[in-house]
C-alpha cells in the first residue's frame, strides 16, 4: 500500500461534544486505523481554524487540508450548492440520504472540483424547525407578522417574507439575546441547536415544520488531494463514508432525544400537517423558480426526479 506519514488538519465549527465533534473523532479514528497509524487527523473544533468561509478559502489555497461545514456557505463558490437550500425539498431523512448519496448529490459535489475543493460525503446538520413566542403555527396564515430571525442568506430571507413573516437577518451569536429581549419573536433551527442553545428558555411554541434540510459537507483541499496516492485517497473516502453513516445515526438519535427534552422543558410542540406544508410549498413557488434559474433548470429537474424516485421507492 502506498501510504506516507501524513498529518491532516480537519477544521469544524461546533464544539468537541457536539454531533459534529463526535463524528470528526470517528473519522479521525477510522483514518488512523485504515492507514496503519500513518495518516493522522488533527480534528480542531470550535471554529479555532476560523469561520466556514475562512476555512474554505484556506482549503482552496492549499493552506489547510480538510474541513466540514455548511453547504449554504459554499453557494458563493459553486452556485449549484444552492439547490440544498430549497424549502420543503425533502420530507424525511431517508429521502435526503437517497438523493445526497445518489448520482445527483455526487454531481453537485463534483462541481466544487473546478473551484479547488473535493467533496467527500454529506453529513447531516438536520431539518430546521420553527420556534416562536406568538402562537402555535398550525397553518400558513399563522406565519403572518411573526418577527423571525433568519440566516443572513437571500434565499431564506425571501422565503420567510413570502410566507408572511417579518424576516430579520441576525448573526447567530446575537440570537439568544434577541429572543430574550423580544427583539424578534422566533427563529428556526434543528432541534439539537434549539436545545444546546437553550432557546427553550425564551421560546414557547415549537412547530415541527421540517421546512429545510441542512446538510454539512466534508471537504478536502484539491491541491492536497491531488498530491495523495490512490491508496491514501481511498483511506480518506472510506473513512468519510463510515463517519457519515455514524454521524447521521448519531444526529438523528440526538434529534429525537432533543425533541423529547424540549417537550420536557415545557415547550408546546405541534406538527405542521402535510397539507399545510404543501400550501407553504406552493406559496414558495416563486422562490423555487429563482433557485431553479440559479442552479440551472436541468439540475433542478434532476434533483426533483431523484426526490420523486426516492419517495416512491419506499
Amino acid at each position: 500500500q502506498d501510504i506516507k506519514n501524513r498529518l491532516i488538519r480537519f477544521g469544524y465549527g461546533l464544539n468537541e461534544v457536539s454531533n459534529q465533534g463526535r463524528a470528526a473523532k470517528v473519522f479521525a479514528d477510522e483514518v488512523e486505523k485504515a492507514s496503519g497509524g500513518k495518516m493522522k487527523i488533527r480534528a480542531i473544533g470550535a471554529a479555532a481554524l476560523g469561520s466556514d468561509v475562512q476555512m474554505q478559502q484556506a482549503l482552496i489555497g492549499g493552506a489547510q487540508e480538510m474541513m466540514v461545514g455548511s453547504t449554504a456557505t459554499l453557494v458563493g463558490i459553486t452556485k449549484e450548492m444552492a439547490i440544498w437550500d430549497t424549502p420543503f425539498l425533502f420530507n424525511n431523512g431517508k429521502e435526503a440520504d437517497a438523493v445526497l448519496d445518489g448520482p445527483v448529490g455526487q454531481k453537485v459535489m463534483d462541481k466544487l472540483q473546478e473551484k479547488g475543493l473535493v467533496g467527500l460525503v454529506y453529513w447531516e446538520n438536520g431539518f430546521r424547525n420553527l420556534t416562536n413566542n406568538k402562537r402555535a403555527v398550525t397553518k400558513l396564515e399563522d406565519m403572518e407578522g411573526i418577527k423571525l430571525r433568519v440566516m443572513q442568506n437571500n434565499v431564506f430571507i425571501d422565503s420567510f417574507k413570502t410566507l408572511g413573516a417579518n424576516a430579520v437577518p441576525l448573526p447567530f451569536s446575537e440570537l439568544f439575546t434577541a429572543l430574550e429581549t423580544k427583539t424578534v419573536d422566533g427563529q428556526e433551527n434543528p432541534y439539537n441547536t434549539i436545545l444546546s442553545s437553550k432557546f427553550y428558555e425564551v421560546q414557547k411554541y415549537l412547530t415541527v415544520t421540517n421546512h429545510v434540510y441542512s446538510p454539512w459537507i466534508v471537504l478536502v483541499s484539491k491541491k492536497y488531494w491531488d498530491g495523495l496516492s490512490k491508496d491514501e485517497q481511498k483511506v480518506l473516502l472510506d473513512a468519510a463514508k463510515k463517519s457519515r453513516d455514524f454521524e447521521r445515526k448519531d444526529t438523528r438519535a440526538e434529534a429525537d432525544k432533543a425533541l423529547a427534552d424540549l417537550r420536557a422543558k415545557g415547550m408546546q410542540v405541534n406538527e405542521l400537517s402535510s397539507a399545510e406544508a404543501g400550501r407553504m410549498r406552493d406559496k414558495l413557488s416563486a422562490i423555487n423558480t429563482s433557485i431553479a434559474a440559479n442552479v440551472g433548470e436541468s439540475l433542478w429537474k434532476e434533483v426533483q426526479d431523484a426526490v420523486a424516485q426516492a419517495r416512491t421507492a419506499k
Binding site: Q56, I60, N153
Partner: peptide, 13 residues
C-alpha cells in the same frame, strides 16, 4: 495567493 483564491468566491449576501 488569497486574492487569487478569492476571485472565484463570492460573499453570501
Amino acid at each position: 495567493e488569497q486574492v487569487l483564491v478569492g476571485m472565484d468566491s463570492r460573499s453570501p449576501v
